[in-house]
Design a binder for these strands. Sequence first.
DNA 1: CCGATCGCTTACAATTTTGTAAGTTCATGG
DNA 2: CCATGAACTTACAAAATTGTAAGCGATCGG
Lengths: 118, 118
Amino acid sequence: MRKTTSTNYLNAQTLHGLCDAAYTLSILSGRWKLTLLVKLGEGNKRFSELKAQIPMITERVLALQLKELEKSGLLIKKESVIKSKVCSYELSPLGKSLDQVIQSLSDWGIANNLQPEL
Amino acid sequence: MRKTTSTNYLNAQTLHGLCDAAYTLSILSGRWKLTLLVKLGEGNKRFSELKAQIPMITERVLALQLKELEKSGLLIKKESVIKSKVCSYELSPLGKSLDQVIQSLSDWGIANNLQPEL
DNA sequence: CCGATCGCTTACAATTTTGTAAGTTCATGG
DNA sequence: CCATGAACTTACAAAATTGTAAGCGATCGG
């Protein structure tokens, strides 16, 4: 999916090694990741619930973002043993620890996100 | 540069209206923006100084990122009246106010950015 | 005056992200 | 057994970001 030989990729790697803030940012960036983290902060949810609560997301992208968040260790996918195919997503402790970061982003946004059209 | 009719663009707009954290994130995202904000936090710098201090960035991208940061209101470009063509970039008060946000990102990164290769 | 440097811009290409549409597999529910 | 829904995947396309290479008009230093 990503070319590990591209300049782009190498630049990102180097940067994450040099700047911890950039590393954190890279984990959070992706169109719906913050939204997903917030929604899952409210409680565990299933794929279809997330889809229903975020109408604009497509199934493809939802699956992609969930997978990346899982890979980053921010959430855990629980497959019910009883009924397979029925699973739910929950925040990992690491995911929960992002709470303050998100709050910080949110605070700044509230103070400065003055929608021009309102 | 950006198609204001694309689904992608519309999704971003809607999201920023709904989630202040996502708005803040969008302002910070861009390969070198954090780095630039940090460097300029140390003091005003000129184009060529920034280029020298961030070897991996290309002039094209440096110019682009500076322009976007300026458009977001995070920094100010000062052209010397005496000698034109000698200008420097400085953080605006808004840019400085991101300090805490960046610190928050950085803290989380320090705690969790465990470089596998070290 | 002349070459070097500064602060960009342009044209182009590669890479990456996001979106569209459809199909697949498995497990209920009736 | 069959339609339905859940949770994806696949193939493809559009859009956005980033990188490569070169050029261009000041201005500076000598």
